[in-house]
Design a protein around this nucleic acid. Structure first.
Length: 104
RNA sequence: GGGGGCGGUCGGGUGGUCGCUGCACGGCUCCCGGCCGUGCAGAGGAAAGUCCGCACUCCACAGGGCAGGGCGCCGGGUAACACCCGGGAGGGGGCAACCCCUCGGACAGGGCCACAGAAACAGACCGCCAGCGGCCCGCGUGACCACGCGGGUGCGGGCAAGGGUGAAAAGGUGGGGUAAGAGCCCACCGGCGUCGGGGGCAACCCCGGCGGCCAGGCAACCCCCGCCCGGAGCAAGGCCAAACAGGCGCGAGCGCGCGGCCGAGGCCGCGCCGGGGUGUGGCCCGCACCCCUCGAGCGCCGGGUAGGCCGCUUGAGCCUGGGGGAGACCCCAGGCCCAGAGAGAUGACCACCGCCUGAAGCGCGGUACCCUGGCCGCACCCCCGGCCAGGCGACGCGCGUUCAGGUACAGAAUGCGGCUUACAGACCGCCCCCGCCG
RNA sequence: GGGCCCGUAGCGCAGUUGGGAGCGCACCUCAAUGGCAUUGAGGGGGUCGCGGGUUCAAGUCCCGCCGGGUCCA
């Protein structure tokens, strides 16, 4: 589990040769309009980065309260920060294995 | 020009790149399924809150009643409503246009009305009034004892006008009447009841007559009267149906050797041979695993979980035109198909335009004040006053180039009719008030 | 999609035949102590979640909103 002021990222190996992504925005984020918007933005950000991700893991993005007022660029920066810290980018320079937690 | 009232409409647009959901067509792939391409469509006036009413589905139900809940002036609209329209009565706000609130019953009964006050629904505290009895005080006649008048006090009565309390106290004014008074009686006014006439479908309104002043409030306290309501909810409900468990059937050794146990004939473990089956694979061999009567595996059956499909979007539907009605609304004709997701589809990055607010800019109008010049008056000048011309211009209106900011409330989940709540702003029609000009 | 409960002082809570807004802790002042704690005496502090309505009078009754919690399918 990796934590950022805007987001929480949980990672678990899925035993497949692909990446699966889930997005959550709970009631603390806001009303339905705000929650839907945050989830749409997170899906878009994850979709663009999909081909650059290390396969074999499930990614669970959880929006925190301050994500409701964050800009799109702020969310992008948060996602990139968490991906880097989780060693999930499939670049050859970073070859360390991600620290996967037990599946909940 | 400014401010306001009522009714109604809209609530961003166009284009590009990368993406999402559904449907149709075409293509690819070995089936299930999936992929690619093209085209079309893809959130709201409140989709919201879930406060009412329906449709729909399942369960229950002969009929009636009880309990519980809701509604409550009259007429109309509607599938129905606690909604809507029109009207009525009472109360309130606003100069006005107009807006808001209330609506069966208090002689069917029960209950409550704090504090204050005599009394809160029935009466007498201070009072007012005569009568009776003794005593006290004062005044007058008179000899201090008697008599008369007035006052105080006591007793049993009459009265309800005045004072005072309170949110609320037995109608108001005037007159008659009385020991004092009182609707006790009379006139008028107000209210109630009733009768007659007129208007209105009705609630109700208007006019006239008569009657007696019989007399509080709260039913958003219980209650009474009238009307309405069976329960649950699309996770309703229906269809298909893995895995595991269950039932039935089919189903290949009662082989050999070694070891152990004991009731001496079997049981258990291991190995070998044979056979059956599953997986891998296009098929055979091979390999791995399971089983051979305490049974692997296969087939069938019922209920049905995970999961999938239907329900699921053609409907009290939308648009246009015509007609009826005061309106809500209804009728007719023609045309249209307009989201259907399933952790829940509209996003991201721009470009241009639109709308609103503010600042600067330009143009037009230009009264007051100020500056300059000229003329006139006092007349030699200054000062002062008046008139004319020019300049600067608070301010108003218009224009649209520039810059900055803003562009709300809010996301369908079975559908529909209402109610309530949130909302940047824009537009249309009618009406009211104020100011200015003609 | 339905059912129920709560909101009162800074915090935790009472408040029924509708008429006084209260209790404990905390806070302030004074006393006691050399000082602190304990203790004793006194005191301040409230849009009763918000807005309407019924009533003479509403924390209490009725209606509509807002926030929080909980249960069932």
């Amino acid at each position: 589990m990796y934590v950022h002021p805007l987001l929480v990222l949980r990672v678990a190996p899925n035993g497949l040769d692909q990446v699966r992504v889930g997005v959550t925005a709970g009631r603390a984020v806001g009303k339905a309009v705000v929650r839907n918007k945050v989830k749409r933005r997170l899906r878009e950000i994850a979709r663009v980065r999909l081909p650059r991700l290390r396969p074999g893991y499930d990614l669970w993005w959880i929006a925190r309260r301050r994500a409701a007022t964050a800009s799109f660029a702020d969310l992008e920066a948060a996602v990139d920060d968490l991906l880097r810290r989780a060693h999930l980018l499939a670049s050859p320079a970073d070859s360390a294995a991600p620290h996967a937690e037990r599946s909940p």
